Amino acid sequence: MSRILPFLLILMVMGCKKTSVAEADLHCLNGYWEIDEVVFPDGSVKEYGINPSIDFIQLKGNEGYRKKMQPKFDGSYTTSNDTEKFSVTEVSNGFAMHYQNDFSDWEETLVKLDSTSFAVINQEGITYFYKRFEPIKIPK
């Protein structure tokens, strides 16, 4: 019972709260993002310090892609050619990002979005908080 209570509490809060994500804000997803923290259904939190990889998101209309990037100290990035394509659709509680590849498909619902941060919750009730990536600047 003690494991179910935090999950139900999160669902109730999310269900009763009007979404703060507007269609006009979806363009804010474009750019480089790093994960800040993850909140699990049981209420436990995993915080991230420096991330070895970041996400690049490009959204045009309702279609987009997400790509993992590794920033380098000279300001450039290394990456593979792998991308995760997604589509954004309006759902009852805001907007959802639908991903599909050869191996699986999944959905993340946007719960927060502005120019400096965003958060999504997945089908397992795990909430991911992202912040805008700021490259490390080393003085010359």
Rank of each mutant, 00 (worst) to 15 (best):
V111L: 14
T83M: 09
V91P: 02
E108S: 04
N101A: 04
I126V: 15
N51Q: 11
D82V: 10
G94P: 01
V91A: 10
F86D: 03
S92P: 02
E47V: 14
K68P: 01
D74K: 00
H98R: 11
S104Y: 14
E107W: 00
S80M: 10
N51E: 12
T83P: 00
N51W: 03
E108L: 09
T127N: 06
E90S: 11
D74T: 01
Q70E: 11
F73R: 10
F73M: 13
G75I: 09
Y65M: 11
Q100E: 15
T116M: 11
D114F: 06
S80Q: 07
T79K: 14
Q58M: 03
E90N: 06
S104N: 13
I57P: 01
Q123F: 02
K67S: 02
F118I: 12
T78K: 11
I121Q: 08
G75F: 08
N122Y: 03
T116C: 04
T127A: 15
F95R: 14
E63K: 14
E47H: 14
E47C: 14
T109G: 01
T116L: 13
Y77D: 08
D102Y: 00
V111P: 00
F86M: 02
I50S: 05
S53R: 10
R66F: 01
Q70L: 02
Y48A: 12
W106G: 12
I126R: 13
V120S: 07
K68D: 04
H98W: 02
D102G: 02
V111T: 15
E84Y: 13
Y77W: 10
P71V: 10
